[in-house]
């Protein structure tokens, strides 16, 4: 019996140590969660801030726009990230625009196509009408901010957008992140797929298409001629006082220094 007792005590002691080591050296943490489209930008901003301000740790979690919004409402984060505007159902929150982002249509580097029209994109996703070698589109999961914006912005010649569809055309696959869309498109020989990603996440592994004859560039979005764009918002519960550290970081995000990072990463700055 003594042995068992000793063992239990030893276990409890170790357990106590494990749970307290964490508390001992705890840094001040700012927690941010939400859109996976905003996340790469926020991570850049956070590490720049962390380097400049020692002793502060900024935790950037993904989850999606919905999570960012719900966490903000429930007080699970300091503030949330969303890549879409708030829905009418999402009350009690304030959104502030951090940046504007374009949505780029992407294909495999080996794909012969250079540009598509809105009608072609609509028909591919709605009816499975091929565009040259492209036979299927990649969608994002329901309620992804990027998908929401894309479905609203792509309209056919009759003015119908993709949100009206009951279901996408057969063959449309769904990927649950920007990164996965890029991986799928970039895979060798996948010249039959079309996908869409945040402009800031665009890299050289894929080819960006002209949309209605316009290149997806920061200049074209600022000029308002590239039509696939949406906001990157920060979401705070209305009336909530942020912690000192969180407020400092929040303010930092709208300084010139931070907005220059926004610009350098391929997004459109707000101030």
């Amino acid at each position: 019996m003594k042995k068992t007792l000793a063992m239990v005590l030893a276990l409890a002691a170790v357990g106590g140590m494990v749970s307290f080591t964490g508390c001992g050296k705890e840094k001040t943490t700012v927690t941010i969660s939400g859109s996976t489209s905003v996340q790469p930008l926020m991570e850049e901003l956070a590490s720049a801030y962390e380097e400049a301000h020692g002793g502060i740790s900024i935790e950037v979690n993904g989850g999606g726009s919905g999570v960012g919004i719900s966490d903000a409402l429930l007080g699970k984060n300091d503030f949330g990230m969303s890549s879409r505007e708030l829905k009418p159902t999402e009350v009690g929150l304030t959104a502030r625009r951090l940046a504007t982002d374009g949505i780029a249509l992407v294909v495999n580097q080996a794909c012969a196509i250079d540009g598509v029209t809105a009608d072609e994109v609509y028909n591919l996703y709605a009816n499975g009408v091929p565009i040259g070698s492209i036979t299927a589109g990649i969608a994002r999961e329901a309620s992804s901010g990027t998908r929401g914006a894309f479905d609203e912005l792509v309209k056919n010649s009759e003015g119908k957008d993709l949100t009206e569809l009951e279901a996408f055309a057969d063959g449309t696959q769904t990927q649950n992140s920007t990164g996965n869309v890029l991986t799928q498109i970039a895979t060798k020989g996948n010249t039959n797929l079309l996908g869409y990603v945040s402009l800031g996440s665009l890299d050289e592994t894929v080819k960006a298409l002209k949309y209605d004859g316009v290149e997806p560039t920061v200049q074209n979005i600022e000029a308002g001629i590239y039509r696939l764009s949406r906001p990157f918002n920060l979401v705070v519960k209305s009336g909530k006082t942020l912690s000192r550290e969180a407020q400092a970081f929040f303010d930092y995000l709208f300084t010139d220094e931070a907005q220059e990072i926004v610009e350098s990463k391929g997004y459109i700055r707000v101030s």
Partner: peptide, 19 residues
């Protein structure tokens, strides 16, 4: 055909829902 099962739908969308 790309399709979705009960489990995939849960894991794909759970992260995005509003409370």
């Amino acid at each position: 055909l790309p399709v979705s099962s009960l489990t995939t739908t849960i894991v794909q969308e759970m992260g995005y829902v509003s409370p």
